[in-house]
Design a protein around this nucleic acid. Structure first.
Ligand SMILES: [Mn+2]
Ligand SMILES: [Mn+2]
Ligand SMILES: [Zn+2]
Ligand SMILES: [Zn+2]
Lengths: 141, 141
DNA sequence: CCCATATTGAAAACTACTATCAAAAACAAC
DNA sequence: GTTGTTTTTGATAGTAGTTTTCAATATGGG
């Protein structure tokens, strides 16, 4: 809850009620949220919130590196708070609950081989894992 | 061009002109295509093609595992023909040209560690690499 | 060749997202 | 605290992407 305000201020942006609300929603969610969902959860905290502002704020936070847009199986995509450092998401396909994990050098070998073979130079990667959390696998096993 | 028709027939679907056109477009593209793009390229081959049919056909091919929906940085997502086996894409962020590569056991270690730590059971993963192809890096280096 | 059925495309409906603009809020200077 | 400049906001309207509906058409088996 502090990170967000600091990042805004340091980048010269104003700290406003809607921006605080969006930050609160995202930092408490453990599942990627669409803009619509952020809007609905946000209105609970601040009834005056506007959908347009949610879109703007999501774009802003993404540009500041505070959240990342992740691929979602059905819909188009969702937003997830990024804890500092290089991280990836493991998402439960049933309940949507997701955990992040550090991805430091996780793919270095793969990438090195690939660059040699293809002539490409790899700059970024997107890695998302999908599966079932222990809760959703039921009580069996 | 044969794979597609066989897969349709074997699953009990009819082989139609629009379906052949969409297959042709996708199997010749070396870049993820949005529905709109498939539609435009498809109309060159068959003027009567309808956009709605493109959407339906993309969904059908995805359900048959012939194409996969990949995350695209700006837009929402694009469709890419999947060659049999487990593959990932390396996409040039400048020209969009992409190469596929086999991803057999590439993440096994990572996944094993992660399952132990989180209690999740990983079923699928999405891995996409982004960078510059040799052409787009210019003549230097 | 014919027929039952799957499939198609136009139009309309619906949803996601973006541009516009006057009113309101933030913050720095006093 | 008051003031004033500038950023930010939210309602409305507009655009783009996707789905539903339905009568007309094409397919593949008999
Ligand atoms: Mn997407
Ligand atoms: Mn990584
Ligand atoms: Zn779950
Ligand atoms: Zn390139």
């Amino acid at each position: 809850m502090e990170r967000w305000e600091e990042a805004l201020a340091q980048a010269g942006y104003r700290v406003t009620v809607p921006r605080r609300v969006v930050a609160a929603v995202l930092s408490e969610a453990d599942t990627p949220c669409s803009a619509q969902v952020v809007f609905e959860l946000g209105k609970i905290r601040y009834a005056g919130l506007g959908l347009v502002t949610v879109y703007r704020t999501l774009a802003l936070y993404e540009s500041l590196g505070l959240i990342s847009r992740v691929h979602v199986h059905d819909g188009c995509h969702g937003y997830l708070a990024t804890t500092p450092g290089h991280r990836h998401a493991l998402i439960c396909t049933r309940c949507g609950r997701s955990v992040e994990f550090l991805g430091q050098g996780d793919l270095d070998l793969l990438i090195a081989r690939l660059e040699k073979r293809t002539g490409y130079r790899v700059q970024e990667h997107l890695l998302q894992l999908f599966g079932l959390c222990s809760g959703c696998r039921g009580t069996d096993e």
